[in-house]
Design a protein around this nucleic acid. Structure first.
Lengths: 154, 154
DNA sequence: GTGCGTGCAAAATCTTTGCATACGC
DNA sequence: GCGTATGCAAAGATTTTGCACGCAC
């Protein structure tokens, strides 16, 4: 008779384990708990490192904040999580100008090269989305993560 | 005979002074220097608080970092500066998911309420902008800063 | 003269890191 | 058993704040 599986099935666990082992890394309870938390709350929920820490504590899992920071960075690198930039964390400033209306940024994820562009289409899409749920638009910024030509050829 | 103007003309100074006085605030040399710096380097340049501090020191202006933080916040509130969110400062995470492709965020600047939406139009605009300068698109996120219905009515 | 703004230094956040121990492999 | 990952605490980095003084108005 077959032994019961020690771990419940988790659609993320197999890929997580495989991905980790490819790089000589290890599947630890801490890493599993962080990823399971995100799976449990579902896509589209945004948590900070501190949020993750608290949620895990409430679920009776003590994972140190340092490990959570390390794990979040790892899971983003591996593609399991996305890192968002919402307005709270903005730390750079530029001049407002009529010649230079709402504009957007293309950032090379490898070398950091940044290019700006404008797009009436984007502006309009943001406005429509805002109006649909009754928000009043203030400004919109599209951040495009990309590879620049130089980094593509390397 | 007319007295010479003590201050050189500056296209931002008059609006700055007027805007400040409307709220019972004052036009100080520090505030003027910060705004002049941004004007000197031109629209589209992105500076952090620390950058502003260094640039002013090089221009022989000692303005304390605390004042720079206070002034940047003020100038953003008044609309003279924009606050950007580039990829360096992201601090929130969400699950990646095939059911939940590139999507965008509407954030209420007052209460922080966040709504998501998707837009093929935005995706396409990002793709076109990337291809135009030879970048290869990885992902794009539109952040829309807005006022939610509740906060509008207050 | 009134009271807002500044500088300074201390505090509060938020995030990273060094090191000894624990444990996945 | 080897070597990666963790927890802890300390260090860093960034941003905010309390307070006395200075200066814009």
């Amino acid at each position: 008779m077959a032994l019961p599986s020690a771990k419940p099935f988790n659609r993320f666990e197999a890929p997580l384990e495989v991905g980790l082992h490819q790089d000589g890394r290890r599947l630890t309870p801490q890493r599993r708990k962080v990823l399971e938390l995100f799976e449990r709350i579902g896509a589209g929920m945004h948590l900070s490192a501190e949020d993750v820490h608290h949620q895990l504590l409430e679920a009776r899992s003590r994972v140190s904040l340092a490990t959570i920071y390390r794990t979040l960075r790892l899971l983003v690198q591996m593609g399991f999580l996305h890192e968002l930039e919402l307005s709270e964390g903005g730390h750079r400033f530029e001049l407002s100008s009529d010649d230079h209306p709402d504009h957007h940024h293309l950032v090379c994820v490898r070398c950091g090269r940044t290019e700006e562009f404008e797009s009436e289409q984007v502006l309009q899409a943001g406005r429509i989305a805002a109006e649909r749920i009754g928000f009043h638009l203030i400004e919109s910024t599209l951040n495009v993560r990309a590879l620049c030509p130089t980094c593509q050829s390397q």
